[in-house]
Design a protein around this nucleic acid. Sequence first.
DNA 1: GCCCAGGTGGGTA
DNA 2: TACCCACATGGG
Length: 215
Amino acid sequence: MSTDHSLQQIYQRLFERYGPQYWWPADEPFEVIVGAILTQSTAWTNVEKAILELKKANVLNPVSLRDLPTDSLAQLIRSSGYYNVKARKLKAFVEWLGNYNDSLERMFASDIPQLRKELLSIYGIGQETADSIILYAARKPIFVIDAYTHRIMDRLGLNPDYGNYAALQTVFMSNLTHDERFFNEYHALFVRHGKEVCQKSSPFCDGCCLSNLRI
DNA sequence: GCCCAGGTGGGTA
DNA sequence: TACCCACATGGG
C-alpha cells in the first residue's frame, strides 16, 4: 500500500471518529502565537489559564507585552510552567514583531520558507512552534509535527526516524496535497487521538480506530 | 508521591 | 552530530 494512501486512510479514520476540531483554540492570530509558545511541553489546560490571566490584565497584545517587565509577565503566565523562560520567549517574539510595526499581516506576507527561516531565528521558537504559527496563525499549508504525531506514526510503523522532525514532516509534505484546511484538521486530529487514546504509558490499543492500519 | 503534558536552547564529547 | 540537562506548573 502506498504511503499517500495510508496517510489518507489515517485521516479518514480519525475524522470519522472525532469530527472537525475547529483549531486553533484562540480568538485571533496573536493569541495563537502566544499559545504556541506557552504550550511547549505543557498541557493545554495550563496554557488556557495563563492566556486568561493575560486577557484579564489586558496585555494580550504586542505593545503591552513589550512594555511589561519580564518578571511581571512571568507571574501572569505562571500556570503554564517554565514561566521564566517562556516570559523571555514571548518578549523575544514581540521585540522581533516590532520590526514589522507589530503587523502580523506584514510578517505573514513572506512565503513559507522565508517566514519559517525568520521565525526559527527568534529565541524560543523551534520547528514545531514555527510550523504551528505558519499553519494556525498565518494559515499557510505546512504540516506540524509534535510528540503525538511522532508517537502515533511510530506505533503505526510509518515513522522513518523517531524524533527526527524533518524526516517525519517530509512524509506528510511529500505525499499529501498542500492544503491549509486539510493540514489544520489532520494535525488537530492527531492531538485529539494522542490525548485520548494513544498515550505514552498505554500500549497501542487493539480497539483503537487506527490499529488495523499498522504496518 | 509519581508520571506526564501540543519543546527549546545550551553545554559537552 | 548526538546525546544530556534545565526549565516548572497542574491534573490524573
